[in-house]
Design a protein around this nucleic acid. Structure first.
Lengths: 121, 121
DNA sequence: AAACCTAACTTCAATTTTGCAAGTTACTAG
DNA sequence: CTAGTAACTTGCAAAATTGAAGTTAGGTTT
């Protein structure tokens, strides 16, 4: 399944999920992709300022995990678009619940737009 | 030791949430607490084998964040119980969605018991 | 055509965080 | 007096992350 992961911590679905996106940046990238950002530089210029080497690495991992698909949309000069697969889009409910928790328990957090929380554009 | 939450990456509720539990171990600890584990050694002996220094550090952080409450239930010798606060229990929906995603997209993952996925004991 | 700009990355030194093993403290039981 | 258990703590080496600077392939401006 995921060749870059040497050992599984367990077969718990939560743990297996966290082994893919349980870090400081991956879900932020996914949030941006869900919000319609598509290119490397759009992702790099989000307010959280992910370091570019981290962004590149996480995008490669997400591609290897079939969570995003990288597609060339212009050849000269080469320009790429990162798009969510179904597997990637399926993370929206988890993001929604995290956002709900954040809004409830962390002060002064942004309220995501309705289409995000409802999951229909 | 990290004086945690020194700077906010943004006011995004997802990002603020991840700044608390967006690492490899915190949600695993929360999963165990939700599943009824209560003591340090119960948590330490979960199948994922969290290193004990990490466990101690994360528990302190979770206490500081008001996500767990540490209570002395026996004085000689001192024995403690870690219990979820409401803020901690409110993370269950996020864990459920992560588990749902894991079960759908990761092979051979355990199916959590019904009370866990339904959120009623 | 030289100089400058942009997207999409890479590379690298300097931290920071993590994992592993072993040690500590405070008791209880035999 | 030795052993055992719960709940941590300490000391490092190893791995991961950061921030800054550099690279590549073209395009645009003067």
């Amino acid at each position: 399944m995921s060749p870059h992961k040497k050992f599984l911590r367990s077969r718990c679905p939560i743990v297996n999920g966290l082994d893919v996106f349980g870090d400081k940046w991956t879900l932020v990238i996914l949030r941006d992709l869900i919000c319609g950002e598509e290119t490397y530089s759009e992702l790099a210029s989000s307010p959280e300022r992910i370091p570019t080497n981290r962004l590149a690495e996480r995008l490669k991992m997400l591609e290897a995990e079939n969570i995003v698909k990288k597609s060339l949309y212009q050849n000269k000069p080469k320009r790429y678009r990162y798009l969510l697969t179904e597997k990637g889009k399926d993370l929206l409910p988890a993001l929604q619940e995290i956002a709900r928790w954040g809004n409830k328990h962390m002060e002064d957090t942004w309220i995501p737009p309705d289409w995000f929380m409802q999951g229909k554009r």
